[in-house]
Write a protein that binds this DNA or RNA. Sequence first.
DNA 1: GTCATTATAGACTGTTTAGTCAATAATGTC
DNA 2: GACATTATTGACTAAACAGTCTATAATGAC
Lengths: 191, 191
Amino acid sequence: MARPRSFDSDVVLDKAVEAFRGKGFDGTSVEDLEKATGLGRASLYGAFGDKRALYLAALRRYQGTKDISLLQTLNAAKTGRAAIEKLFSVVIEEAAGDPCGCLLANAASERAAHDARVARCVEDNRRRVEGALLAAVLRGRADGSVKARGEARASARFLFAATLGLRALGRTGCDRAELRAAAGEALRTLD
Amino acid sequence: MARPRSFDSDVVLDKAVEAFRGKGFDGTSVEDLEKATGLGRASLYGAFGDKRALYLAALRRYQGTKDISLLQTLNAAKTGRAAIEKLFSVVIEEAAGDPCGCLLANAASERAAHDARVARCVEDNRRRVEGALLAAVLRGRADGSVKARGEARASARFLFAATLGLRALGRTGCDRAELRAAAGEALRTLD
DNA sequence: GTCATTATAGACTGTTTAGTCAATAATGTC
DNA sequence: GACATTATTGACTAAACAGTCTATAATGAC
């Protein structure tokens, strides 16, 4: 048998996520990644391939963890409307409290146009979040907490866009209260 | 007297904008900027300082030109509501037709967290766009095309966030029709 | 035309970059 | 405990990087 890995890939990827989230793909050097993960260069290259492959693996890892917490957030709420409101408040807390932002949103802005695999990750993520929001909208329409007006799919897509918009708004110096007020307007589409 | 400049700064900045818009600050090398602008290194450094200063100058130039076309777009419309709808359709065309996106939105995502001067540009831009949208909302409330509900300022801020959200949504592979449907939902907050 | 001054071109510099490699360490099998 | 196999370490490489410098060119003043 061969020498075993001294690390857990997911733990390493979580640390790579933090590095990439802070400085982007181009802004994060392999040395930064060594420091962030605690691994040596050869270990990183041996385990993940090259920098781009590590980035893609970090992106997938991030998407997986976000996906789980998204579904938990939405499913824990009592009504469809409450689920959507809770998601918005989570996004606002992230946008106001963390200057580095969402790795997937950053990837969409920095790399999706030039890297087809990043574009796929980003599109795949949209489909998942949109799907979860669609379920919440339909639940809300069924339980009466969301007014049934127009196509539910368009409503879900708009809500996803609104979360992206709130994240971007947070980058322009808006505080929590301002984000909340803007989110309140978005939620009015559910009345 | 001394030798005169062989170029127009604004023309050069417009070309730098295109370079930075395509690949971001970190992704654009000084060599890329030489090729994009047609200037030699020494001319770029002599005229603008260093790479960051050139980026900031490009950002200000971009903001200035966008500001003008924004006001033209909004003022040309007959009603407040039509002004806002026209702006949304312009944003959708940009988001669907141009994979490189808005330099200011990209700057917010890539650099605002790490560069205070970029953060100022981005915040300043938000204030201007928000102000223009506020005027359009108030105009709409006055001419009856926009229902007066809640704070007009929050409505304007939400509309700005919605444009950012639509741009971000365009990065995730949505086509024009999908963007239009999402924008339609956002505009429902004006009913 | 000469001079002072600034612009330009292109070579140059030291640093940082992504990625590789040879030497060594750690494992299960036999 | 020797072996085959894979992981790790840290030095190494070639290329790309931002920024500088020297030589030369272009101007208005005089």
